[in-house]
Computed example of a mutant assay.
Amino acid sequence: MTTSPDVPALAGPRVYWHTAASLIVVLLAAVFAGRHWTAVGTAAERLAAADRGWLLVAATASVSTWACSALVQQGAVTQPLPAGRLVAAQFAASAANHVLPAGLGATAVNWRFLTRCGLTPTHTAGALALKATASATTRAALIVVLALASPGILRLPPPPSVAPALLVGLAGIATVLLTRPLRTRMGTLLWAALTDFRAVHELPGRVAALWGGSLAFASLHALVVYAVTQALHLPLPVSQVALVYLAASSAAALLPTPGGLGSLDAALGLALVAAGAPGGTAASVVLGYRLLTVWLPLAPGLLVLGVLIRRRHL
Score class of each variant (00 low, 15 high):
residue 198 R to M: 00
residue 199 A to C: 06
residue 202 E to P: 08
residue 203 L to F: 03
residue 203 L to A: 13
residue 203 L to M: 12
residue 204 P to F: 02
residue 207 V to S: 15
residue 208 A to D: 00
residue 212 G to A: 02
residue 213 G to M: 02
residue 214 S to K: 03
residue 216 A to P: 09
residue 217 F to P: 08
residue 218 A to Y: 05
residue 220 L to A: 08
residue 221 H to K: 10
residue 221 H to P: 05
residue 223 L to T: 15
residue 224 V to T: 11
residue 225 V to Y: 05
residue 230 Q to K: 14
residue 230 Q to C: 15
residue 231 A to V: 03
residue 232 L to K: 06
residue 234 L to W: 00
residue 235 P to Y: 06
residue 235 P to R: 07
residue 239 S to G: 09
residue 239 S to A: 15
residue 240 Q to S: 12
residue 242 A to H: 12
residue 242 A to M: 11
residue 242 A to P: 02
residue 243 L to M: 07
residue 243 L to D: 04
residue 246 L to Y: 06
residue 246 L to K: 07
residue 248 A to Y: 08
residue 248 A to K: 03
residue 249 S to C: 13
residue 249 S to N: 05
residue 250 S to D: 04
residue 250 S to C: 10
residue 252 A to I: 00
residue 252 A to P: 01
residue 253 A to D: 05
residue 255 L to Y: 13
residue 257 T to N: 11
residue 258 P to H: 01
residue 258 P to I: 00
residue 259 G to H: 05
residue 260 G to T: 05
residue 260 G to R: 01
residue 261 L to R: 10
residue 261 L to W: 13
residue 262 G to N: 00
residue 262 G to T: 03
residue 263 S to R: 06
residue 268 L to S: 07
residue 268 L to V: 14
residue 268 L to N: 06
residue 270 L to G: 14
residue 275 A to I: 09
residue 276 G to Y: 07
residue 277 A to T: 14
residue 278 P to L: 01
residue 279 G to T: 15
residue 279 G to I: 08
residue 281 T to F: 11
residue 284 S to M: 00
residue 284 S to R: 02
residue 286 V to S: 08
residue 287 L to W: 13
residue 287 L to M: 10
residue 287 L to K: 09
residue 289 Y to Q: 04
residue 289 Y to A: 12
residue 289 Y to C: 11
